[in-house]
């Protein structure tokens, strides 16, 4: 008799456990306004990334087309993957002294692991992490970027 009772009790317990599970899913089914999906390309305008988000390395320029990069190459040394290449050139300044300045700050986005070591090591804060995360390109050539804009020059007062 007891085993029969247990058998029936077991069935009802099992059904109850199933019903509690169904209650959880039903709760979410009937509250569709709590849905978590975001419609991504449509919400581009309202989508704001956090300011520390590491999307890509960029070099900020001011309105006079000036940057802070001295071309010292510390970021190149600190990069674990070789995604930064510094090409510098010699110029003669007004005082007649020879000086090395940056020619091209080449950044290989395809090789970058976004570890932040270059930004952390930069003595003049010339490069920062940008928030752009849409890195799809048609060819890999476009993933190699020159960070300093053409015709730009170094900001005055940046310590060499």
């Amino acid at each position: 008799m007891k085993s029969t009772f247990n058998y029936i009790a077991e069935i009802f317990k099992a059904i109850w456990s199933l019903l509690t599970g169904m209650k959880v899913t039903a709760k979410y089914f009937f509250t569709p306004w709590n849905n978590v999906t975001q419609q991504y390309p449509e919400n581009r305008d309202t989508l704001v990334m956090f300011d520390r988000f590491r999307g890509e390395v960029i070099m900020p320029h001011d309105e006079k087309n000036e940057h802070k990069c001295t071309g010292c190459g510390i970021c190149e040394i600190n990069c674990p993957n070789g995604s930064i290449e510094i090409i510098s050139k010699s110029i003669v300044n007004e005082e007649g002294k020879k000086k090395r300045i940056i020619d091209q700050h080449i950044y290989h986005l395809a090789m970058c692991t976004f570890c932040n070591l270059c930004i952390k090591s930069c003595p003049s804060d010339a490069i920062v992490m940008g928030q752009n995360f849409e890195h799809a390109y048609w060819d890999r050539v476009s993933m190699t970027k020159v960070l300093n804009r053409p015709g730009s020059k170094i900001m005055e007062g940046v310590k060499e």
């Binding site: 956090f50 520390r52 988000f53 976004f114 570890c115 932040n116 992490m129």
Partner: peptide, 24 residues
């Protein structure tokens, strides 16, 4: 994580001697 460490999965938040940024 994204707000404090700057990344979601590959945090790289610890550096020898501390952490990369202060907490947000």
């Amino acid at each position: 994580f994204e707000e404090t460490c700057g990344a979601r999965l590959t945090l790289n938040y610890s550096v020898p001697g501390g952490v990369m940024f202060d907490i947000h």
